[in-house]
Amino acid sequence: MSEPGYRLLDCGDWALTVELGRAVDPVVNAQVVALDEAIRSAGRPGLLETVPTYRSLLVLYDPDLLPRADLAALIAAHWPPPVAATGAIRRWRVPVLYGGEHGVDLADLAAKTKLSQDEVIALHAGCDYRVHMIGFAPGFAYLGGLDPRIHASRRTDPRPTIPPGSVSIGGNQTGVSPPLELPSGWQLIGRTPARSYDPARAEPFLFAAGDLIRFEPIDRAAFDDLSAAAQAGERVATMERVHG
């Protein structure tokens, strides 16, 4: 990558996008997450909010407290961000009830990919995914690392609402929905009882960009038990720290 390796793109008078790349790329995303941590931990007044995404970092600033030139200098001073030095990564184990009424597109996806439903489940639950970004809706996690054998094009006709907590596939990505009824054009393969977003919980959000997620298949009885626990405010998904 040629230096400095990013472009500053203004978003009006109080925000700019630090664009690190234009494609979905795990290395670029790791740099985004590292840059985000670096400039946030600098603790500069006037740095209002940041939004890490696949390939860029949106930075909202107050130009009265942090002039644009100073913000540009802050970013330059933290480039390249220390990706390798990142310590423990959070890994979430997220229970999923696959197929049936909770994953209405699983059978079709299996047929299209010439795999059995169990094989699709094994592929989907068989690896760690990286949270590339949280966006679109509260707590919606876009995940990278989907096995190419189960890539699936989006529906031509998006559904106006999908079940809360849906686990779905859109192109080469998979995602976890929050417990909200959202529109979606992705293929629905399962549902998690875990609530990635719950404003009433002390910790309203589970996932953040840079986290790892691994899905664990559960049966209907476990889904019902865990749903009740999640409703009562339990996290249900478990978290451990691993070295990336």
Binding site: C11, W14, Y54, S56, G135
Partner: peptide, 11 residues
């Protein structure tokens, strides 16, 4: 189509 990124008020 671009790869999704952040949107501000007024975008």
């Amino acid at each position: 189509n671009i790869v999704s990124d952040g949107i501000v008020n007024g975008s």
